[in-house]
Each structure stands twice: as structure tokens, then as C-alpha cells.
């Protein structure tokens, strides 16, 4: 009995399922890590979303941002849905930027993660502390927001190195560029 080789469409679907299963596993791991320990922690979801969104479309990016945001809201005690709104904007903009303006490399992932984390932390600081005029609210910015941005930047290349082989192995091959064709 011979096994029928998969058609291209079947292969794309098969790879997509495996790829997303791995992404979901990584989101799950991030959900565990975000709850581990008591000190300042990086926002694992931001570099993860940026890396995943490099190769995905706008719709998956929006849903990914929404779900990751909800998990992060639950872990950090923020208003349920607050982070989702921001993460959707981050993910969709990352998708568009990588499609039109940026190369898919570690430097861009780090830069984009840094910008998004800084934006998130500044807004978080403003809405949760500065706006309410707490005494010495600058403490939160210097002792929580800035270290958080710094830690997130540090873990960005690690996340990139985890996502890259997944994409390389399980993302359907695009048509070859002229340069690639000429090399062959």
C-alpha cells in the first residue's frame, strides 16, 4: 500500500497547524514565565508577538495580539482588555512594517520590541500612576518601567532565535527571488 504524497495545499495547512501549535506552546510558556518570581519581569509577549507577526498576516496578528493582551492583563492585574488593545496595534503594525519597510533580522526585532515595550510602559505609567498623582510616582518609572524595558530588550534576541527555526522549518516556501534562482 503506497502513501499518497501531500499536495501543496495540504502541506501548507499541515505546516500551518504545526507552526501555530508551536506558537501556542510558546505563548503558554510565556504565560508561565510571566507568573514566575516576584521582581520586575520582562514582557515576554511583546518580542514573541513581534517575531510571530514577521511572517503572518494582519488577521492572525490581530487575534494574536488580542489573546496575548488578555493573558497579560490577567497576569498583571490590569483592566481586562487594556493590554489587548495595545497589543493588537503593536502586532498589526509589526506585520505591516515587516512586509513593507523592515528586513526580518534580529536587530529589527530588538528595535521594534524596544519601541513597543517603551510605548506600553510609558502609557502604563501614565494611566496607572502619573495620572493619579501618587506621591513619588517617578519611582515606578525608574524602578519598574525602565528595568522592564531593558529586560524585554535583552530577551528579544533569544525569542527571535527560538522563532526563527520554527519559521524556517514550518513556513511554506515562497517563490524564489531572482538572486536565489541564479545561485541555483
Amino acid at each position: 500500500m503506497s502513501i499518497k504524497p501531500m499536495t501543496r495545499i495540504q502541506k501548507i495547512r499541515y505546516y500551518a497547524v504545526i507552526r501555530w501549535a508551536l506558537y501556542i506552546f510558546l505563548i503558554f510558556v510565556s504565560a508561565i514565565l510571566i507568573n514566575v518570581g516576584k521582581g520586575v519581569k520582562p514582557i515576554y509577549f511583546i518580542p514573541l508577538c513581534v517575531c510571530i507577526c514577521m511572517n503572518e498576516g494582519e488577521y492572525p496578528a490581530a487575534f494574536l495580539g488580542g489573546i496575548c493582551g488578555l493573558i497579560f492583563d490577567e497576569a498583571s492585574g490590569k483592566i481586562f482588555g487594556y493590554s489587548s488593545v495595545m497589543f493588537i496595534i503593536f502586532c498589526v503594525s509589526a506585520t505591516i512594517l515587516f512586509r513593507h519597510l523592515l528586513f526580518q533580522n534580529a536587530v529589527n526585532v530588538i528595535a521594534l520590541s524596544a519601541v513597543y515595550t517603551a510605548t506600553y510602559q510609558i502609557l502604563d505609567y501614565f494611566f496607572y500612576y502619573a495620572m493619579w498623582d501618587y506621591e513619588n510616582s517617578g519611582y515606578v518609572f525608574s524602578h519598574i518601567s525602565i528595568p522592564c524595558i531593558f529586560y524585554t530588550i535583552i530577551i528579544s534576541p533569544i525569542v527571535y532565535l527560538i522563532i526563527k527555526p520554527i519559521v524556517k522549518r514550518f513556513y511554506p516556501k515562497k517563490a524564489k527571488t531572482i538572486e536565489e534562482a541564479m545561485k541555483v
Binding site: E58, Y59, A62, G66, G69, I79, G81, S84, V85, I88
Partner: peptide
């Protein structure tokens, strides 16, 4: 569609 999704989550935040 993405704006609608964002609006949905924003609505959820306001509801919360």
C-alpha cells in the same frame, strides 16, 4: 475588520 476587533477589545476594557 482589525479596527472592529480593536473596538471589541476596547469595549471589553470599558465593560470591565
Amino acid at each position: 475588520v482589525i479596527v472592529c476587533i480593536t473596538a471589541f477589545f476596547l469595549g471589553m476594557a470599558l465593560y470591565s
